[in-house]
Amino acid sequence: MNIYNSIIIAIIIRYLNEERTKAMNLHGWVIYNGYLQGNKFLDFAEWIQRAAAKQNIQMDIYRNNELLSLLAAGSMSLLNDRIAELPRFAVFADKDIYLAKQLELLGVRVFNSAEVIACSDDKIATYQTLAANKLPIPQTIVAPKAFHQSGNVRFGDYQAAIDQLGLPMIVKEAFGSFGEQVHIVSTETELFACIRELHGKPFMLQEFIASSHGRDMRLHVVGDAVAAAMTRQSSNDFRANVTAGGTMQAYQPTLKEKQLAIAAAKAIGADFAGVDLLFGENENPIICEINSNAHIRNMYDCTRINVADFIIDYIKKTLK
């Protein structure tokens, strides 16, 4: 081996060692909700932790109820005796936007930010943002705000919505997960019964996309790319959610579908997100929802692609 090759090898080794040192200096947290039943949310946190460990990044897992936000005159902090120092970053697998905001105010880079989580969690805010960015969504009419549930529901207030959207239509609560707060109504009687039940909550009326009945696609966006995608289908429900009994299949999205999913995530400012698209007329994609902390196990089981690896790569590049 000549001296030139030795120098090149030495430079490469030095570079690799420097990169490894930089990675080891990264310290992060994964935060999930400690009050939700089951292990699904801890499972997500552990996937992120293992992906980080493969790149020599230390990540600690916390439940949100282990991190109490203290606010006082002239100071703010987190109450937990285990904390020696704050992390450089946090992956926020929760919707506790006040805790996410507390971390940001303390100088921690949060993926996704409190603002993004809040927009994604509120489907009305999501659709307003998407419409403002001229992205394709189902026609949506926001129900007028009522401050509390009462028997004083004026169904005449909704006649213009019926005329605009027709029946059947979708009635969707602003806040909810796994398709559980999404209803389909076929008659005015069903619609008014649903409105009476939801009166006092934020909800919307939405055009029913018949061409996507029981099927949709989930594209997991990380940064400026789609890391993985799958289609979901149900034979006995208008919703395609796997938790509602739908089946999944690995999918290679078209360029148009990829571009739309990335644009949707960018519109709300997400670092990464699970974007659900409906099949519109002639299979043209329509945005259904954006999930700022979408779970990744089903995507892996379906596609064998570990989205957590893409998330950690993205975080490293962002923090660099």
Results as ranks from 00 to 15, higher is better:
M217P: 05
A90Q: 06
I117Y: 07
F208W: 14
N17E: 08
G280W: 07
S292Q: 10
Q181R: 13
E85S: 15
V275H: 01
W29S: 04
C302T: 15
Q233W: 02
Y314T: 03
I48Q: 08
A118P: 03
P202T: 04
R304N: 11
A45F: 05
K316F: 01
Q233S: 10
T231Y: 06
I61L: 05
V185R: 05
D81H: 13
N241M: 08
C302V: 12
W47R: 15
V108G: 00
V242H: 10
D216K: 10
G214Y: 11
A294I: 01
R196T: 12
L71Q: 12
L103R: 04
A118T: 04
F178V: 06
L260G: 10
I7H: 00
D237N: 15
N112P: 11
Y127Q: 14
D313V: 04
D216A: 08
L42G: 03
I268P: 03
I124L: 09
Q139G: 06
L106A: 08
C288F: 12
H183V: 05
S211T: 15
A308G: 03
T231N: 02
I184R: 14
K258Q: 14
H148Y: 13
A270N: 09
A93R: 12
L70Y: 11
N80T: 07
R14N: 11
I209D: 02
S235M: 14
Q233N: 10
A125H: 09
L70A: 08
L167P: 07
I268Q: 03
Q233C: 09
A131F: 05
V275R: 04
E289M: 06
I61Q: 01
F238Y: 06
A53P: 01
I31F: 09
A265S: 09
I311P: 00
D271A: 11
Y4G: 05
Q249P: 02
I9T: 13
A45H: 07
A263S: 15
L167I: 07
D94F: 13
I9G: 00
L70D: 06
R63F: 05
I8K: 11
Q37T: 11
V221C: 00
F44M: 13
Y4Q: 10
N39K: 15
P138Q: 06
I141Y: 01
I315N: 00
Q159T: 15
K40Q: 11
M217A: 14
E207V: 07
V275C: 05
N133Y: 04
A263V: 11
V153G: 00
S235W: 02
N56H: 13
E46S: 14
K256W: 02
S292L: 10
S77K: 08
